[in-house]
């Protein structure tokens, strides 16, 4: 019982001290220099903005969807666009390269190096023979 009373008294003392500090701060704030007031206001805005901005590139939205690199997108949108264009170009070239490999031995050089002379390929009769044998 005695301990409870002591605790209550300590709490009341702390509250009174806090009120005193608040009163003193308010009084000082009324007389603070305009330049310092402006700097303090700017710092407060910065602190609030930092609190609103998530610290990492990964955030979880209100409906629980994980969003990656949202802030990076805002900061580096032009670079990311260029990067995606570059990657797209690389993919395109890789696909073209694969297609070229599949079409390997299709140039005139391979025709000239064929087991059959090139003249036979321009022969109409051979064309007919090829059509008949390809269909079988």
């Amino acid at each position: 019982m005695k301990i409870n009373t002591e605790n209550q008294q300590t709490e009341l003392r702390d509250q009174a001290l806090a009120k005193c500090v608040v009163t003193l701060l308010n009084e000082q704030a009324m007389t603070v220099d305009t330049r310092i007031a402006s700097q303090l206001s700017y710092s407060r805005q910065q602190a609030l903005a930092n609190m609103a901005m998530p610290s990492s590139g990964m955030t979880i939205s209100q409906n629980g969807v994980l969003r990656l690199f949202r802030n990076y997108w805002h900061q580096y949108s032009l670079l990311l666009t260029l990067l995606m264009c570059g990657l797209g170009l690389l993919v395109l070239l890789a696909m073209q390269n694969m297609a070229n490999q599949e079409e390997a031995e299709q140039g005139d050089a391979y025709l000239l190096a064929s087991d059959l002379p090139p003249e036979i390929y321009s022969n109409e009769g051979f064309g007919t023979w090829l059509s008949e044998n390809t269909q079988q």
């Binding site: 299709q106 391979y110 090829l130």
Partner: peptide, 13 residues
Amino acid sequence: NARKRFQQFKSLP
């Protein structure tokens, strides 16, 4: 014509 038939030749069994 030769190019076309060369491709045809390559597709023979």
